[in-house]
């Protein structure tokens, strides 16, 4: 049995969770068709029947929906206790989740509770006996082969390591409503209030034909004027690196990468972005990439189809001027 923790967003099962199920299908096939069950916790964006129906198309057999007062607000320990109760009743030998902040947190709690190892950011599995996985380390600059010889094997899957494809043959998608007991100690650390995030506007970015990307090289929250003008001139969308969202220069919905959106435009113009593997995970499907970077040795330049070497604050305004000139 394989259990996958599934997170949800406005569309139902989140893309990275669907990727995790697709990864689990590969594992299931290698293991001779081990069933895949899903756990979802707390309030859902749709009815639990709808979600179970969606997960069935991804090949899921049973969908455990844990509800109760304990899950009214998010808490890592409470969620882990829900996953643990499902793992106990299914005797799962593998428990996995997407490598999102919550996926990492909940599975780390689970692994600590069960006294087993946890592998973060797995990209592939190498063999079943011993169960060996490869995962990203050193911020993606290196990989680590790791043996998970305890049961259950607990690991998270790096974003966009596999495609979120539906299954060739659907699963049963049986809905199982459960109300696991949660110990008081597991309810101490939980969200007490949340200011809702700004509306998710990433739809435009994901479907844009041209994306202008900006990284640390933009220099500050006020360094985006020329980049926004180029975006406007090309009728495209602005996308950014995680450094840019972490520093609060631009909102999170503009982030491209492993923990952001995955884009596939006709042209991606990556300005002042080094091209870390986690960023690359979100832009690799672009049909053409133009890198603008002061560093001719930056990985983004090496991986791009086209490059201009130099300061984006000189190059981008010059491109804008040339565009305006030719438009007349």
């Amino acid at each position: 049995m394989i259990v996958v923790l599934v997170e949800t967003d406005a569309d139902g099962a989140a893309e990275m969770s669907r990727e995790a199920i697709a990864f689990a299908r590969g594992l299931s096939a290698a293991g001779g068709g081990v069933p895949i069950d899903a756990v979802v916790v707390g309030e859902l964006p749709c009815s639990s029947e709808q979600l179970a129906g969606q997960l069935a198309t991804y090949g899921v057999r049973d969908v455990y929906h844990a509800t109760g007062e304990a899950f009214g607000a998010y808490g890592g320990a409470a969620w882990a206790s829900a996953v643990q109760s499902v793992r106990d009743s299914t005797r799962a030998v593998v428990v996995t989740a997407a490598g999102t902040p919550r996926g990492m947190e909940v599975l780390a709690h689970l692994a600590a509770r069960l006294g087993v190892a946890m592998a973060a950011n797995v990209v592939s599995f190498e063999g079943l006996s011993p169960f060996t996985v490869t995962r990203q380390v050193v911020g993606g600059a290196a990989l680590e082969e790791m043996v998970l010889d305890e049961r259950p094997a607990v690991f998270t899957i790096a974003g966009h390591a596999v495609e979120a494809q539906p299954a060739e043959s659907p699963g049963a998608g049986n809905l199982v409503e459960v109300a696991p007991e949660v110990a008081a100690a597991d309810l101490v650390a939980r969200v007490v209030s949340a200011e809702p995030p700004a509306a998710d506007l990433s739809g435009d970015l994901k479907s844009a034909r041209v994306v202008v990307g900006a990284g640390r090289g933009a220099g500050g929250a006020d360094g985006f004027g020329d980049l926004l003008e180029l975006t406007e001139l090309l009728g495209g969308s602005l996308g950014v690196s995680r450094v840019v969202t972490s520093l609060g220069w631009r909102p999170h919905h503009e982030q491209i990468g492993q923990t952001g959106s995955r884009i596939s435009p006709d042209l991606y113009i990556a300005c002042g972005i080094s091209g870390a593997i986690q960023h690359w995970a979100g832009c690799a499907s672009s049909k053409a990439i133009l890198a603008i970077n002061t560093d001719a040795e930056a990985p983004m330049v090496a991986k791009a189809d086209y490059a201009v070497i130099g300061d984006l604050h000189e190059i981008v305004p010059a491109i804008n001027a040339e565009l305006r000139k030719r438009k007349g």
Binding site: L290, A291, A296, V301, A302, K303, A304, D305, Y306, A307, V308, I309, G310, D311, E314, I315, P317, A318
Partner: peptide, 10 residues
């Protein structure tokens, strides 16, 4: 990679 040039001249 096809380097189109350096700086604003590109």
């Amino acid at each position: 990679v096809d380097v189109l040039g350096r700086g604003a001249d590109a």
